[in-house]
Design a protein around this nucleic acid. Structure first.
Lengths: 168, 168
DNA sequence: CAAAGTGAGTTCCAAAATGGAACTCATAAG
DNA sequence: CTTATGAGTTCCATTTTGGAACTCACTTTG
């Protein structure tokens, strides 16, 4: 086993990390979403090695989160755009940005704010419960086994049982 | 420059990725949050190399997202718990889980659902605008420069200008 | 009392991933 | 004819990783 087989783990977080769990993929997606869509522009903006950028773009296309669109032929030149699947990762990026703004910058040093286009307000996104509308804090959430059954490790099984105990 | 200096980039996502941007940190935090709090238990659950786990736990403590608490001395043995800063990363993990459940599993194969404790419903978290309450989709958000000024790359400056143009 | 088990690491090596610079190839611009 | 642009690829030295074995301080089992 060379890289860990995260994509075969029975866990949505593990499989998601198989797609975006490295230092560059998230930043490439950010650039592409902001409109920095070409190889050289991304390379200059991030300072990433061309070798790694080339390989990352290819796996992102493989994973279906980016699409590669020629804007000219002879010589072939390309833009990269997020697919729907890739754009949907925007929520993950937003959550990272909100966390980074809160914990890694002083208030007056925050480099980029997020504005909700339809209401015009600056926002630090909160996750809300789509059922009751309340703010959803991580500590308000309990994990419950899904329909996919649980062929989990002994450790996880034990941990999940602890959640369903009274004191959980 | 050995590792890329993401933590010095003027970008909240980059700095956040400096903290959690690898294949293991998110999963370790998941385990610890679920109640798998000890070295050997995490190692068995994830199948991570002991060498890497040891190093990751140390940097997570350095970054202030985990705390290491002795539950016995002689020999010293430890639990790891999320700090407030670490627990706050839960939103990022929730967003990853929601994305993974949606895009990487068939409906009937989803291994773990999330239940909102106070309302009892299963949820796939949505990000909501705290100002107007509407669901916040990534495409509804425009980036605007924050108080920290922008000593950005030419690429990013150009991209941000494009956002504020009519067609943006 | 000896042997085996538990828990949290550390040490070592081979294999894989990375950064960075130089190179390629096609075409356009001066 | 020289330089520039854009999207890569090739090569090498350095880092990071996986994995197995080892350590050290007890505790439990027989």
């Amino acid at each position: 086993m060379t890289r860990p087989q995260l994509d075969e783990m029975n866990c949505a977080i593990a499989r998601t990390l198989d797609v975006i769990g490295d230092r560059w993929t998230g930043l490439i997606l950010r650039d592409v979403s902001l409109g920095i869509t070409r190889f050289d522009a991304i390379q200059r903006d991030l300072g990433i090695s061309r070798r790694v950028l080339s390989e990352r773009l290819a796996t992102m296309v493989d994973h279906g989160i980016l699409q590669r669109v020629a804007y000219q032929t002879a010589p072939a030149r390309y833009d990269y755009f997020p697919t729907e699947k890739g754009a949907d990762l925007g929520l993950v990026l937003l959550a990272m940005q909100a966390w980074g703004n809160r914990w890694l910058f002083d208030d007056e040093e925050v480099p980029l704010l997020l504005r909700h286009a339809s209401c015009g307000n600056e926002v630090s996104p909160q996750i809300a419960c789509p059922e009751c509308g309340e703010e959803l804090r991580p500590q308000d959430i309990v994990p419950v086994p899904g329909p996919g059954g649980v062929d989990d490790s002994a450790e996880l099984t034990a941990a999940l049982e602890r959640w369903s105990q009274p004191g959980g």
